[in-house]
């Protein structure tokens, strides 16, 4: 299909981008890799007046270190994330999850920031950002602000980004200590979205699990943590039984949808199985 007509702006700096968004009229849309936006426009389910394409904003691309954190530019593509040595060293969970996103072509265009700003409940990266306690750096007409991942995902396809705001970069605290990670994705065919997925990061200490962070994908309108399981794992022995027992509460407090791929009760069941598997792998069991 052919999108409805729209104006097109291509800024080269964050400032210009914020300005272009401010001047873009009532219905302005930011475009990153376009991998979620363009299909919706082609089906004419969205018909924005103006598109602000971030593709030429060089400062929003790439990964750098800043003390205890990694800073990932919102326009860093999935392919770049997968290949990045800093991410491999300090935030391998992101790379592992990103490898499961879509297909090669889509990963060369789609961006880390775009995936977070889009906030699809079935998207793989929001739950990872949540599990890693990432922070979103956002620029708007009033300057910059930082939003923790816990507050960023507000509802189905809705984030804390205000009108006129651009997601500039994502700060991810480096994992310090003996961490193991695992992204356990469940889907029907290789290039499909997650029916349910579980992101797990586990810190081991003396044969015990000292700390576990669990992010759930597609278990509700927004990505979730699994607090009961995390609590049960803190200090638990790194054994299959302990992990299995803790995983049984992974779906507590979730409200997944029912759709073609899965009904809610099945999703809740999957969340438990996948949590057990993700944690076990992350803990090296």
């Amino acid at each position: 299909m052919i999108p409805a007509p729209f104006e097109y702006v291509r800024p080269t700096t964050v400032e210009e981008a914020v300005q272009a968004v401010a001047e873009g009229g009532d219905d302005v849309k930011i475009m990153a890799g376009g991998q979620s936006l363009i299909p919706v426009m082609r089906l004419r389910l969205a018909a924005p007046e103006t598109i602000v394409d971030l593709g030429r904003v060089a400062e929003m691309r790439g990964v750098r270190e800043d003390g205890d954190a990694l800073v990932i530019g919102a326009m860093t593509t999935h392919a770049e994330v997968i290949a990045d040595p800093l991410i491999a060293q300090h935030a391998r969970l992101i790379a592992e999850a990103t490898e499961t996103v879509a297909d090669r072509q889509t990963r060369r265009r789609g961006t880390f920031g775009g995936a977070l700003a889009h906030a699809d409940p079935a998207g793989d990266l929001p739950s990872v950002a949540l599990a890693l306690d990432a922070e979103m750096v956002v620029a708007g007409p009033e300057g910059r602000r930082t939003v923790p991942a816990r507050e960023f995902f507000v509802d189905y396809l809705t984030t804390a980004l205000d009108e006129g705001e651009v997601l500039v970069e994502i700060r991810v605290p480096k994992l310090a200590g003996d961490w193991g990670v695992r992204y356990e994705k469940f889907n029907r065919v290789a290039q499909a979205w997650s029916i349910v997925a579980v992101a797990a990061a586990v810190r081991r200490e003396n044969g015990h699990i000292a700390e576990a962070r669990i992010g759930l994908t597609n278990m509700g309108p927004v990505p979730l943590r699994a607090p009961a399981t995390e609590a049960a794992l803190a200090g638990a022995s790194a054994s299959p039984d302990a992990v299995a027992a803790a995983a049984r509460s992974a779906a507590e407090g979730t409200s997944p949808s029912s759709d073609l791929n899965a009904q809610a009760d099945y999703r809740q069941h999957l969340a438990q199985v996948l949590t057990r598997r993700a944690v076990a792998t992350a803990a090296g069991l």
């Binding site: 979620s36 299909p39 699809d120 009904q263």
Partner: peptide
């Protein structure tokens, strides 16, 4: 039977497409 709601990842209801 399978549920008859689309997956949320689709983000698009083809029945709503303007065609």
């Amino acid at each position: 039977d399978r549920a008859t709601a689309k997956t949320n990842a689709q983000g698009a209801e083809s029945a709503q497409a303007p065609s």
